[in-house]
Simulated scan of single mutants.
Amino acid sequence: VDSYGPVADNAQSIFELSQIEGIEGVHESIEKEFGFKPDFERAKYYLESNDSAGNTFKATAKPVLIGTAVTGATTMIFSIILLLEKVGALHISLTDAPVILGLICGGAVVFWFSGASMQAVTTGAYRAVEFIRRTFNFAKKEADMDDSISVVKICTQYAQKGMWNIFIALISLTLAFAFGDPNFFVAYLISIAVFGLFQAIYMANAGGSWDNAKKVVEVDLKEKNTPLHEASIVGDTVGDPFKDTTSVSLNPIIKFSTLFGLLATEMSIQMKYVETTDISLYIAIPFLILGLCFVWRSFYRMRIPTV
């Protein structure tokens, strides 16, 4: 199910990039070789309709993937709970301030990640457009391989910058909280799993809806190059990072948080309840500061410059 969407999307892109309609004598060549007269307008209609179906397929498959992440996270969270209960360190109550704060922080991390990942996508797209405007020769009738490589390079650089900011921030915060209050940390992990599940489902469905709205305008209403079409394109620029970036990326975010949390919890228990010297607080504070620095970087170092 998840493979159908990219295949349909790429089929349409390949058709458009091939510019087969403009090739001289292509109708006669296809009829001679394959025995039928090509109807490129009809082919374009079917490809765009198929792309719309692919978006629906992707939106259907992604919640299943995020569901598997939450299932795995639930198992690891229960492992952490059992570890902490074994040493008598866990006393969860919804009236306790650390538990409430942990639930709030877990949800905040999910929404921070959503914004930071979309910020990286937006900035990378802006840089690519600026590069195209500055360097491309629009008089060319065919795509240039060197130009394409340059655009891919720019997009890759900003994807990697955003990835490092988010990854370091997430791991640092998880380690900081794991070495802190255990009740806060368990509530934090539960909140990430719950908020992440519903956020991912919402973003996958909303992104697919925005993308398909543009297809409805283009294919069914045949309103290309109209104000309605322009509005649908704006929606699609929001929908693409929703469904293709943030929703699927919440899967590893949930898994990494619980996995590193489980490992850090074992180390924290060793320091607090086995060894004579407890240095967990001295580990938690630097990681917390480091995480907050990269949270700041994920937005303010990825901003689009105002010139």
Rank of each mutant, 00 (worst) to 15 (best):
S52D: 09
S79K: 09
C105W: 07
F40N: 09
I81G: 01
G88A: 03
L103S: 05
S117V: 14
G54R: 07
G102H: 01
G72S: 01
S114R: 05
A97P: 01
V110G: 00
V110Q: 01
V26P: 01
T135D: 13
A43G: 06
H91F: 10
A53H: 11
A116M: 10
T68G: 06
I80C: 07
H27D: 14
S79T: 13
E21I: 11
M118S: 15
K37R: 14
L17F: 05
L47Y: 09
A59M: 15
P98C: 03
G124H: 07
V87P: 09
L90R: 08
V26H: 04
P98K: 02
A97V: 15
G106A: 04
T123Y: 03
I20Y: 02
I20M: 14
F57M: 12
N50W: 05
A61T: 09
T60W: 11
V87R: 05
N50D: 12
G107F: 07
M118N: 15
G124Y: 07
G102T: 00
G102D: 01
C105V: 09
H91L: 08
I23M: 12
V129W: 04
T122K: 12
E85L: 12
F36M: 07
G67V: 05
L94V: 05
S114K: 05
G107R: 00
E16W: 03
I80G: 01
F34N: 11
H91Y: 10
K37S: 14
A43I: 13
F113H: 01
F136N: 00
A108C: 12
G115D: 10
E28R: 08
S52Y: 03
F57W: 04
A125L: 11
V121T: 02
Y45E: 10
S52P: 01
G35P: 01
W112L: 06
S52R: 07
E41D: 14
A120H: 00
L84G: 03
I104P: 04
S49R: 11
L82M: 11
I132F: 02
